[in-house]
């Protein structure tokens, strides 16, 4: 043991420099070339930073597309899922209540049109996306609240629907709402 102790200390020091010093420094240096210098990609509205491009935020006003339920209420100082088990009666009651709320906020929508992602909390509590169906089911409400033609809102949604190789189709709710505000201001 004694023969190993001093080398163990010295090796630890050397590897600290390598693994916890030089390696992160190298990645940090490379990050200066990445979007926003590796400080996280932000989005602006009227010159003010209103969010991170990849981090979902809370929307509950009728004139905005709503994202998914969040176990941390979209406060990105933390992150978590609900961790509710699939048979938990309290949880299932909460899902049912979310469905009722959604149907009340979106008159004319039938419950079989409501995708479950709008009723279930995401893993991070910060999921920035919805599936195209999760957005489509809210279009009528948005059009009415903003006095826009349904077709105009639909075309905006189409522009913001991202598809990439093998990945599920999705819409970034924050970007979509930003575009929505822009269109509304222009008119």
């Amino acid at each position: 043991m004694k023969n190993n102790l001093l080398p163990a200390f010295r090796l630890t020091l050397v590897l600290l420099v390598l693994c916890a010093g030089l390696y992160p420094a190298l990645i940090w240096a490379a990050a200066q070339l990445a979007p926003n210098g590796g400080r996280g990609e932000t989005v602006r509205q009227n010159g003010r930073v209103v969010g991170y491009a990849n981090v979902g935020q809370k929307f509950d006003r009728p004139e905005y597309f709503h994202g998914r339920p969040s176990a941390v209420d979209y406060n990105a100082t933390g992150s978590a899922g609900s961790n509710k088990g699939p048979s938990n009666p309290e949880y299932l009651a909460a899902v049912r209540a979310r469905l009722d709320t959604f149907l009340r906020q979106n008159p004319g929508v039938r419950k079989e049109q409501v995708p479950a992602e709008l009723l279930t909390a995401s893993g991070s509590g910060l999921d920035p996306h919805l599936s195209p169906r999760g957005v489509a089911v809210q279009v009528a409400r948005i059009a009415k609240a903003r006095n826009l033609a349904v077709a105009d809102v639909q075309s905006l949604v189409r522009q913001h629907t991202e598809t990439s190789f093998l990945a599920p189709a999705r819409v970034n709710v924050l970007q979509l709402n930003l575009a929505l505000d822009q269109v509304t201001v222009r008119r």
């Binding site: 279930t120 995401s122 893993g123 599936s131 599920p168």
Partner: peptide, 11 residues
């Protein structure tokens, strides 16, 4: 249609 989404991310 997306399956069980509680605790999962859309992307």
């Amino acid at each position: 249609h997306l399956g069980a989404m509680e605790g999962k991310e859309v992307r």
